Simulated assay, not measured.
Amino acid sequence: MNASHQKAFSRRKFISVGLFLTFTVLVITAIVIQIFEALENELFIDLFTEVHIFSGLAFMVLSVFHAKMNWQSMRVYVKAKQSVFSREAVCAFLLTVVTILVGVLFIIF
C-alpha cells in the first residue's frame, strides 16, 4: 500500500501567501512604473502597468476571501465593549482617509 503523507490543501495559507506575493508585486511594479515614467520608456510602462493592474485584481479577490474567512476576528477588532468603534478602528479609518486625500490632492495640484 502506498500511504500518502501529504497534508490537505490549506485555503488559509494559500490566501495569506497569495496576498503577500501580490502585495509585493504591486509595490515593485508601482516603483518601476514611476522610474520608467520619468525615463519616458513607453514599452516598460505599458508592460508593468498591465502586471500592476492584474496583480491588483488578484489582490482584491484574495482580500475579499481573506475578509470572509476572518470576519469574526475583524468584528472583534473593530468593536469596543460599549458597541462603539474601537480607537484602533477609528485611527485606521482616519489614516486611510488622510492617505486618500493626500493622494488626490497630490494629483490635483
Rank of each mutant, 00 (worst) to 15 (best):
H52S: 04
V61G: 03
R75G: 14
L47D: 08
V104G: 05
S86E: 01
F48E: 05
A38G: 13
M1R: 03
N41V: 15
T29Y: 02
Q82T: 14
S86K: 02
C91S: 15
S55P: 05
E42P: 05
T24M: 08
F54S: 01
G18E: 09
L43I: 14
S63Y: 03
I28E: 00
A30Y: 03
F54W: 10
M60P: 00
V97Y: 00
S55K: 02
T24R: 02
S16V: 05
H52I: 04
Q34I: 06
M1N: 07
S73I: 10
S63H: 04
A3I: 11
S63R: 01
V32Q: 04
S86C: 04
F14D: 11
L21C: 10
V64E: 05
T99C: 13
S55M: 09
F9Y: 12
N2T: 08
R11W: 15
A38C: 07
K68L: 15
V51M: 03
V76P: 05
A38V: 12
L21M: 14
E88G: 14
L95P: 02
E37A: 15
W71T: 11
T99W: 04
N2W: 06
V27R: 02
F85C: 07
E40T: 14
S86L: 07
I108K: 09
A67G: 08
V102G: 10
V104W: 09
